[in-house]
Deep mutational scan, measured.
Amino acid sequence: ASVAVIAAGTQGNIFATSALRSMRFLQILRMVRMDRRGGTWKLLGSVVYAHSKELITAWYIGFLVLIFASFLVYLAEKDANSDFSSYADSLWWGTITLTTIGYGDKTPHTWLGRVLAAGFALLGISFFALPAGILGSGFALKVQEQHRQKHFEKRRMPAANLIQAAWRLYSTDMSRAYLTATWYYYDSILPSFRELALLFEHVQRARNGGLRPLEVRRAPVPDGAPSRYPPVATCHRPGSTSFCPGESSRMGIKDRIRMGSSQRRTGPSKQHLAPPTMPTSPSSEQVGEATSPTKVQKSWSFNDRTRFRASLRLKPRTSAEDAPSEEVAEEKSYQCELTVDDIMPAVKTVIRSIRILKFLVAKRKFKETLRPYDVKDVIEQYSAGHLDMLGRIKSLQTRVDQIVGRGPGDRKAREKGDKGPSDAEVVDEISMMGRVVKVEKQVQSIEHKLDLLLGFYSRCLRSGTSASLGAVQVPLFDPDITSDYHSPVDHEDISVSAQTLSISRSVSTNMD
């Protein structure tokens, strides 16, 4: 405001104040949320940038038409019409005319000016109207692209899951042992070998009828009888010197917790746990005396209480009078009846079946994303299906024409109403129809010849004498029936064969 007042002088105070007050009108834009329509302006900018070359070309040609039209109309009207006294007036008329506004304040009066105005109007309006069409088509394409992008975003994750499931299904095939990355992934998420051994031990116990592997080994086996189970490696608790092959000598807290839970599941009659010990102070733990958990001091820290809870689970003690015997301790020893080589084939089979199920689920979810969402998608899918159906029908028609023997030239002739090819031409065609016709002709010829021969033979049998045999009239074959199959017997006289037959029969009768 200060700059405006200084620039306008003393009389500019009122002007500056009114100008600043008129800017209050811009507050109405906040009512229509114009300040939060950044996406709309961004869309407009992207459309203009995408079609910038077309817009520049249309505007450039339109500007050239405007300059030439205004100049030529000015030359034609400057002497006869006072409205075109300057080139600026003519340029104003050209702008209003070519933009199809047409105020009518300035019009050419001479015939030359009117002809020039009409010609440049028809030429220039087309170029001035091009930017509107370019922007409209650009907006339509952009909206369609955003629509497809939205659908693509919805299909991206199911497609990625389907590709991942397909690759993992491919890589978990037993015949592709060189693909090891997927197996490394499952090695990292699978439970430890100790848990798998416990699982298979329970399965084997159920197969043995509820007997433990130790009891199965204690059962008497006759001499020479084959053992029911192959000899396997035996594993004891981590306190002993022997372990399962492939295990580490260090046992983690999870393994100890699972070991304690498995020992508690063996039965309360074979294992008696004394009350857990509780320390009397955060600094020292008295293991010899058993106290109640309700006497825990409230001033303990979080670490002390955590250690106390761990001691409740991981440090059970047995009383002296209830101490288990050596046999019970041997039964409680952890027996590992299986090795990694025995378990891994079954584990890989389970993983393979899981990968198949996940692949089928991913495939079903991806197919669900291909379903249409709204009416536009339904129409688009219907149009695509219609085009596909037309293509299939056209391909089927082409194959039928190839089989029947109607080529493209014959199809055009039928469409024009011309006469089709004759039967002889159809026979000569190298097509399925021509071959079928040729075979039918040959079969008819053979059938006719057989009928003639059978009739001749029956007449010979009825006559009974050589004289009557020679008097029999043998009809000749019709050459038209034989089609294109020409037998060497067709052109010979059958009477010669009949005479030869009669001579042979007379000779045979004389010999008798």
Results as ranks from 00 to 15, higher is better:
Ala166Gly: 09
Trp167Leu: 01
Tyr170Phe: 10
Tyr170Ser: 10
Ser171Ala: 03
Ser171Phe: 01
Thr172Ser: 04
Asp173His: 06
Met174Thr: 06
Ser175Cys: 10
Arg176Trp: 09
Arg176Gln: 06
Ala177Gly: 12
Tyr178Phe: 05
Tyr178Asn: 06
Leu179Gln: 02
Thr180Ile: 11
Thr182Pro: 06
Thr182Ala: 05
Trp183Leu: 09
Tyr184Asn: 09
Tyr185Ser: 01
Tyr186Asp: 11
Tyr186Cys: 13
Ser188Ile: 06
Ser188Cys: 09
Ile189Val: 12
Phe193Val: 06
Phe193Cys: 07
Phe193Leu: 13
Arg194Gly: 12
Arg194Thr: 12
Arg194Ser: 08
Glu195Gln: 12
Glu195Asp: 10
Leu196Arg: 09
Leu196Gln: 09
Leu196Val: 12
Ala197Pro: 10
Ala197Gly: 12
Leu199Trp: 14
Phe200Cys: 09
Glu201Val: 10
His202Leu: 05
Arg205Gly: 12
Arg205Pro: 08
Ala206Pro: 09
Ala206Val: 08
Arg207Ser: 07
Arg207His: 06
Gly209Arg: 07
Gly210Asp: 09
Arg212Gly: 14
Arg212Pro: 12
Pro213Leu: 08
Pro213His: 13
Leu214Gln: 13
Glu215Val: 12
Glu215Lys: 07
Glu215Gln: 08
Val216Leu: 14
Arg217Gly: 07
Arg217Pro: 11
Arg218Leu: 07
Pro220Gln: 08
Pro220Ala: 05
Pro222Ser: 08
Asp223Tyr: 14
Asp223His: 09
Asp223Asn: 08
Ala225Val: 09
Ala225Gly: 05
Ala225Thr: 09
Pro226Arg: 07
Arg228Leu: 06
Tyr229Asp: 10
Tyr229Cys: 13
Tyr229Ser: 10
Pro230Arg: 14
Pro231Ala: 15
Pro231Thr: 13
Val232Leu: 10
Val232Ile: 14
Val232Gly: 11
Ala233Asp: 09
Ala233Pro: 12
Thr234Pro: 06
Cys235Trp: 10
Arg237Pro: 09
Arg237Gly: 07
Pro238Ser: 06
Pro238Thr: 08
Pro238Ala: 06
Gly239Ala: 04
Gly239Ser: 06
Gly239Cys: 04
Thr241Ile: 12
Thr241Ala: 03
Cys244Trp: 05
Cys244Phe: 03
Cys244Arg: 14
Gly246Ala: 05
Ser248Ile: 11
Ser249Arg: 14
Ser249Gly: 11
Arg250Trp: 05
Met251Ile: 09
Gly252Asp: 04
Ile253Met: 09
Lys254Arg: 10
Lys254Asn: 04
Lys254Ile: 05
Lys254Glu: 10
Arg256His: 12
Ile257Ser: 11
Ile257Phe: 01
Gly260Ala: 04
Gly260Cys: 13
Ser261Arg: 10
Gln263His: 13
Gln263Lys: 07
Arg264Gln: 04
Thr266Arg: 04
Thr266Met: 08
Thr266Ser: 06
Gly267Arg: 14
Pro268Thr: 01
Lys270Asn: 11
Lys270Gln: 04
Gln271Lys: 13
His272Pro: 04
His272Tyr: 05
Leu273Pro: 05
Pro275Thr: 12
Pro276Ser: 15
Met278Lys: 00
Ser283Arg: 14
Ser283Thr: 07
Ser284Arg: 11
Ser284Gly: 15
Gln286Lys: 14
Gly288Cys: 14
Ala290Pro: 15
Ala290Ser: 15
Ala290Asp: 13
Thr291Ile: 07
Pro293His: 15
Thr294Ala: 13
Gln297His: 14
Gln297Pro: 15
Lys298Asn: 11
Lys298Arg: 09
Ser299Arg: 14
Ser299Cys: 12
Trp300Arg: 15
Trp300Cys: 06
Phe302Tyr: 15
Asn303Lys: 09
Asn303Asp: 15
Asn303Ile: 07
Asp304His: 13
Asp304Gly: 15
Arg305Ser: 15
Arg307Cys: 05
Arg307His: 07
Arg307Pro: 14
Phe308Leu: 15
Arg309Leu: 07
Leu312Pro: 14
Leu312Gln: 14
Arg313Thr: 14
Leu314Phe: 15
Leu314Arg: 10
Lys315Glu: 09
Lys315Thr: 14
Lys315Ile: 09
Lys315Arg: 04
Arg317Cys: 09
Ala320Thr: 14
Ala320Val: 15
Glu321Ala: 09
Ala323Ser: 08
Ala323Asp: 10
Pro324Ala: 05
Pro324Ser: 06
Glu326Val: 05
Glu327Val: 03
Ala329Glu: 12
Glu330Val: 01
Glu330Asp: 04
Glu330Lys: 12
Glu330Ala: 11
Glu331Gln: 08
Glu331Asp: 14
Tyr334His: 13
Tyr334Cys: 11
Tyr334Phe: 08
Tyr334Ser: 09
Glu337Gln: 11
Leu338Pro: 10
Leu338Arg: 13
Thr339Arg: 12
Val340Gly: 06
Asp341Ala: 15
Asp341Glu: 08
Asp342Gly: 06
Asp342Val: 09
Ile343Phe: 14
Ile343Ser: 14
Met344Ile: 09
Pro345Ala: 15
Pro345Ser: 10
Pro345Thr: 08
Ala346Val: 09
Ala346Ser: 09
Ala346Asp: 13
Ala346Pro: 11
Val347Gly: 14
Thr349Ala: 14
Val350Asp: 01
Ile351Ser: 11
Arg352Ser: 12
Ser353Tyr: 12
Ile354Ser: 07
Arg355Trp: 12
Arg355Ser: 10
Ile356Phe: 13
Lys358Arg: 09
Phe359Leu: 12
Phe359Cys: 05
Leu360Met: 06
Leu360Pro: 02
Val361Met: 09
Lys363Arg: 14
Arg364Ser: 08
Phe366Ser: 02
Lys367Asn: 02
Lys367Gln: 02
Glu368Val: 07
Glu368Gly: 02
Glu368Gln: 11
Glu368Lys: 09
Thr369Arg: 02
Leu370Val: 02
Tyr373Asp: 02
Tyr373Asn: 04
Asp374Asn: 01
Asp374Glu: 00
Asp374His: 01
Val375Leu: 04
Lys376Arg: 15
Lys376Glu: 02
Asp377Glu: 13
Val378Ala: 15
Ile379Thr: 12
Ile379Asn: 09
Gln381His: 03
Gln381Leu: 00
Ala384Pro: 12
Gly385Arg: 15
His386Leu: 14
His386Gln: 08
His386Arg: 12
His386Asp: 03
Leu387Pro: 08
Asp388His: 07
Met389Leu: 02
Met389Thr: 13
Leu390Val: 01
Arg392Trp: 01
Ile393Met: 02
Ile393Leu: 03
Lys394Gln: 01
Ser395Cys: 12
Gln397His: 06
Gln397Pro: 02
Thr398Ser: 13
Val400Met: 11
Val400Ala: 14
Asp401His: 15
Gln402His: 13
Gln402Leu: 14
Gln402Pro: 02
Ile403Ser: 03
Val404Ala: 06
Gly405Arg: 07
Gly405Val: 02
Arg406Gly: 08
Arg406Gln: 06
Arg406Pro: 08
Asp410Gly: 10
Lys412Met: 03
Ala413Thr: 09
Arg414Gln: 06
Gly417Asp: 06
Asp418Asn: 01
Asp418Gly: 15
Lys419Thr: 13
Lys419Glu: 10
Pro421Arg: 10
Pro421Leu: 12
Pro421Ser: 13
Asp423Asn: 11
Asp423His: 11
Asp423Tyr: 06
Asp423Ala: 14
Ala424Ser: 06
Ala424Val: 14
Glu425Lys: 06
Glu425Val: 14
Val426Ala: 10
Val427Glu: 11
Ser431Cys: 09
Ser431Arg: 03
Ser431Gly: 09
Val436Met: 14
Val436Glu: 06
Val437Ala: 07
Val439Leu: 11
Gln442Lys: 14
Val443Met: 04
Gln444Pro: 14
Gln444Leu: 08
Ser445Ala: 12
Ser445Tyr: 12
Ile446Asn: 14
Lys449Glu: 03
Lys449Met: 15
Asp451Asn: 07
Asp451Gly: 14
Leu453Met: 15
Leu453Gln: 10
Leu454Phe: 07
Ser458Thr: 13
Cys460Phe: 09
Cys460Trp: 08
Leu461Gln: 09
Arg462Leu: 11
Thr465Ala: 09
Ser466Trp: 07
Ala467Pro: 10
Ser468Arg: 04
Ser468Cys: 08
Ser468Thr: 11
Leu469Met: 14
Gly470Ala: 09
Gly470Asp: 10
Ala471Gly: 09
Ala471Val: 06
Val472Met: 05
Val472Glu: 09
Gln473Pro: 03
Val474Gly: 14
Pro475Gln: 06
Pro475Arg: 06
Phe477Val: 13
Asp478Val: 04
Asp478His: 09
Pro479Leu: 04
Asp480Gly: 13
Asp480Glu: 08
Asp480Asn: 15
Ile481Ser: 05
Ile481Asn: 03
Thr482Ser: 10
Ser483Thr: 04
Asp484Glu: 09
Tyr485Asp: 08
His486Gln: 04
His486Leu: 11
Ser487Arg: 06
Pro488Leu: 13
Pro488His: 15
Asp490Val: 09
His491Arg: 07
His491Asn: 15
Glu492Gly: 06
Asp493Ala: 06
Ile494Met: 13
Ile494Ser: 06
Ile494Phe: 14
Ile494Val: 12
Ile494Leu: 08
Ile494Thr: 08
Ile494Asn: 12
Val496Phe: 05
Ala498Val: 05
Ala498Gly: 09
Gln499Leu: 04
Gln499Lys: 08
Leu501Phe: 07
Leu501Ile: 04
Ser502Cys: 09
Ser504Cys: 15
Ser504Thr: 12
Arg505Pro: 09
Ser506Leu: 09
Val507Gly: 02
Val507Phe: 04
Ser508Asn: 04
Thr509Pro: 08
Thr509Ala: 07
Thr509Ser: 05
Asn510Asp: 08
Met511Arg: 05
Met511Val: 12
Asp512Gly: 08
Asp512Tyr: 10
Asp512Ala: 03
